[in-house]
Design a binder for these strands. Structure first.
Lengths: 207, 207
DNA sequence: GTTTACAAACCAAGCGCTTGCTTGGTATTG
DNA sequence: CAATACCAAGCAAGCGCTTGGTTTGTAAAC
């Protein structure tokens, strides 16, 4: 299953919006604006202008501004959970599964869904209490994918630290790449993946 | 040099505000509010109320709200640069210097200056262009401390990845602890430091 | 194949409120 | 007696969101 197959399967299930639809385009622009200026600094007038409508018209699609933020986050987690699951399934060994997860998360942070992922990392404080609870629920599913692989590695003595600590350190390390990594800087995402795996003392995959 | 000695030396040099002064207390409360609610969601009325004055009176101490944010960040970097320098100076081997840096950064993120450090990580987008340039200048000095140690380790073959990549991954990983680490969770900062160093494949320091 | 019906998508205008900041004047302090 | 720190009041601008009405797309009815 490649990126597009997964995406369209989720669209068919009404789990994420079609990027071609009005709602999908709005969420895409919202993610970009929220990342660039922050949620609070982005006005409903900014959002409306980005898709070429009047600010009041936004509220036919979403009841509140916060609902837009929530939708960006929820759909992003759903998509990425599916992408990570596919990455894990495609790899053979636990070590390769971890490498695939790192590669996939770097991809989602710095590639297609990068804008929305940055929002997920930096704007969770702007969510209401109830929205936050829902997003955290979805995140737990996502995190379990990682923990399963890390615990298997730990069991085989290939990991020198606690899985849950490792995962949290990786979350921070990989999320942070959004602030400095630029694909045109002579460092590919494959290079970066390799460095991360090397840094963890897991030697390169032997064919 | 311990924490208090370093702090008071910086106060004497007018590099940071005395926490007992009106300005110092305001900056401390501002850091707390900015971390908890975000810069944009914190109003000047919130800030004023936190130190028990009227909102208008704030502007006798700072010309704009953004100047308060800048001051929080600048003073925090200054203090932490001095703390890191002391940590490096106190350690003997390069490996111990790295461990000392990790420990000190974890301390600054999760201890005394934690509120301000979180602001530094999450609120840099709210800085004006010029303030940001100045803060980045100060940060470069801070970062060089890390790079010097990491490059020495790399030279001795104790590091499997590029120093600048390692530092950026560490920045993310350690900053991120602010979102999940709680001192009462059965994991001390020393434990955490150990896990980080172990995760990097650097074996424990032998006495 | 035109008409009718109707909902969804949108606009123009603006309301009520909060925001950062200003102003003119009054305590407080050395 | 000057400088510093503060208060009480409020202004102009920008905010999220509402309202009442118009356009647009779609599909059945004739």
């Amino acid at each position: 299953m490649n990126y597009h197959a997964i995406l369209h399967s989720l669209i068919a299930d009404n789990q994420v919006s079609d990027p071609a639809s009005a709602r999908g385009r709005l969420l895409h622009e919202a993610a970009r604006l929220f990342r660039d200026k922050g949620y609070e600094r982005t006005t409903v007038r900014d959002l409306a202008a980005a898709v070429g409508i009047q600010s009041g018209s936004l509220f036919h699609h979403f009841r509140t501004k916060e609902e837009i933020l929530k939708a960006v986050m929820v759909e992003t987690i759903r998509l990425n959970t599916a992408l990570m699951q596919a990455a894990v399934d495609a790899a053979e060994t636990d070590r390769d599964k971890l490498q695939a997860l790192v590669r996939a998360e770097l991809e989602s942070i710095n590639g297609q869904t990068g804008e929305a992922m940055a929002v997920l990392v930096f704007e969770w404080r702007s969510l209401s209490e109830t929205s936050r609870a829902y997003v955290l629920e979805l995140r737990d599913i996502y995190e379990q994918l990682w923990l399963d692989v890390l615990e298997a590695l730990r069991k085989d003595g290939m990991l020198a630290a606690e899985p849950f600590v490792v995962r949290r350190m990786l979350t921070g390390a990989l999320s942070w790449t959004v602030t400095w990594y630029r694909p045109d800087g002579g460092l590919t995402l494959d290079d970066l993946t390799e460095q991360v795996v090397a840094m963890m003392g897991l030697t390169a995959s032997r064919p």
